[in-house]
């Protein structure tokens, strides 16, 4: 196998430290992202396969740095724009607009 044919998500067997055991209660926004994916999945717009692809297409440094549901958020937004469900560029623009209003 060529190491270049291995995605940054394909980590089985990699050296790693102790498994972190702290658990956090999901924040409302995290539940919302999960729920958005579920509802979009029920409507045939966002399969688990598309969710995974979008996560795997994140730059490797983002994949490592972002929290779990931040990765989901980036993947769903990318997929919805790519599939033409929402306009291209609309997600970044809306986030910026909401930040400006804060």
């Amino acid at each position: 196998m060529s190491e270049t044919d291995r995605g940054h998500h394909d980590i089985g067997g990699d050296p790693a430290g102790p498994v972190p055991r702290a658990e956090h209660v999901l924040a409302p926004w995290e539940k919302e992202v999960d729920a958005i994916r579920t509802v979009l999945g029920q409507k045939g717009l966002m399969s688990a396969d598309k969710l995974r692809l979008g996560i795997e297409q994140l730059p490797a440094e983002d994949y490592r740095r972002l929290s779990y549901y931040e990765r989901w958020l980036a993947s769903i937004a990318w997929t919805m724009e790519k599939d033409g469900v929402i306009p291209p560029g609309s997600f970044a623009a809306r986030v910026a607009a909401l930040e400006a209003k804060r």
Partner: peptide, 14 residues
Amino acid sequence: SRAALGARALRELL
């Protein structure tokens, strides 16, 4: 709260 803005943005757009 920053990440929450992203979730809100996505929900609004959808």
